[in-house]
């Protein structure tokens, strides 16, 4: 049973990603149950919920990162701009160029800062010459708010940056491929408060050009950066709505219990 169905249908013309009756099984485990969710364009959607509730699983369905996991089975309909993500004809490589991802732990390649950002554009053949590639790298670093800090050491190792800088480098790397959607899996959980504030600020700026889905354990963060919030519990989508409404006037007792800190 999904409560989301009973909520007023959001304006689906705005929906960038839609999920209809999405189920995920890991071998015997039913990890995600009958999820219906619309993710709107140029908004930040926060996925919250206690550990193991399926929010990361849902996130990884959107760019099919679950394909890498043995015994993982996804059913239901998941679309990106109306294209079925799990259609046989969809090329996963193309899909992941359209749906970027930022991970929990900063994971820059053990290469130079420049090569980290340039890797995506290179494999997708986005630049015709070195000049274009330079421009993509510079713009991406600029938009990730990192250029000022690293412009003198572009050829130094990306792994030599601080944790917060590494995470912004990963964001720069993701946006260099010009994706439509950026998935963020607890991007600030390994960062200190100052670095977190910077990343959150960046997320807010990126909303202008990208659709962002962020998984977070911090309800304050969800409240700060998102326009819409979806609450997951035990693999089910319990409630989804405008962030303000979820945090001030939750409809479901579970949501209320979670945001007031009674469990989770």
């Amino acid at each position: 049973m999904s409560l989301a169905l009973s909520l007023p249908e959001t304006d689906s013309r705005l929906a960038k990603v839609t999920a209809r009756d999405v189920n995920v099984h890991y071998a015997e485990k039913h990890a995600l149950k009958h999820v219906d969710l619309d993710i709107r364009s140029n908004e930040v959607t926060a996925l919250i919920g206690p550990s193991g509730c399926g929010k990361s699983t849902f996130l990884r369905c959107v760019n099919r990162m679950n394909d890498m996991i043995e015994n993982c089975r996804v059913t239901g309909l998941l679309t990106l701009d109306g294209d079925d993500v799990y259609d046989r004809k969809i090329d996963v490589v193309q899909l992941r160029a359209r749906v970027g991802m930022v991970f929990q732990k900063p994971n820059p390649f053990p290469k130079s800062i420049y090569d980290n950002v340039a890797y995506g554009p290179r494999i997708h053949g986005m630049a015709r010459d070195q000049g274009e590639l330079d421009e993509i790298v510079m713009t991406s670093l600029e938009r990730a708010g990192l250029l000022a800090e690293v412009k003198d050491r572009l050829l130094e190792a990306g792994t030599g940056l601080s944790g917060g800088q590494q995470q912004r480098l990963c964001i720069a790397r993701a946006i260099a491929v010009a994706p439509e959607v950026i998935l963020m899996d607890e991007p600030c959980s390994a960062l200190d408060p100052i670095a977190t504030a910077k990343v959150e600020e960046l997320i807010d700026e990126l909303r202008e050009n990208f659709t962002i889905v962020i998984v977070t354990h911090s309800m304050q963060q969800a409240a700060r950066v998102s326009q819409r919030t979806a609450f997951f519990h035990l693999g089910e989508l319990v409630e989804v709505g405008d962030t303000e409404q979820i945090f001030t006037n939750p409809q479901h007792p579970l949501t209320q219990g979670y945001i007031t800190g009674r469990f989770g």
Partner: peptide, 15 residues
């Protein structure tokens, strides 16, 4: 080789 490196490359659309 840490899986995070594989994930990072996969996430960028590397085959």
């Amino acid at each position: 080789v840490p899986p995070s490196i594989r994930e990072a490359a996969m996430g960028l659309g590397a085959s």
